[in-house]
């Protein structure tokens, strides 16, 4: 029961090499998740330079792209995730009030 609770969010971040934008996006994502989804998320980082064949499956065209695989429906957020509010709305995360 608790396990289900834990893996509530499956997130996938597509990047292409360690560019500034990718690094920023990953840092931002980790920060938000730690803040609002502590213990309930999995982040998978896919570097398309190494696995280009994966781009088609998730319909990736922009980099970086964050894909929310779970819960359904699939949501996508593109950009370096610098706007926290937009990311949270996009992922449909209810922010933990500070």
């Amino acid at each position: 029961m608790e396990l289900d609770e834990v893996i509530k969010y499956e997130l996938r971040l597509y990047i292409a090499g360690k560019t500034a934008k990718s690094v920023t996006a990953l840092t931002n994502l980790k920060k938000y998740c730690e803040e609002h989804l502590k213990g309930q998320y999995v982040i998978e980082v896919i570097d398309l330079l190494q696995q280009p064949q994966l781009a088609e499956g998730d319909q990736i065209f922009a980099i970086p792209t964050l894909v929310r695989k779970v819960p359904e429906p699939i949501r996508k957020i593109i950009g370096d995730l610098s706007n926290e509010e937009k990311v949270l709305v996009g992922l449909n995360i209810i922010p933990v009030s500070k």
Partner: peptide, 14 residues
């Protein structure tokens, strides 16, 4: 949803 800077590298890679 678009937030911040991005590019179309994904399309290029594809």
């Amino acid at each position: 949803e678009e937030t911040g800077e991005y590019d179309l590298e994904g399309l290029f890679i594809r």
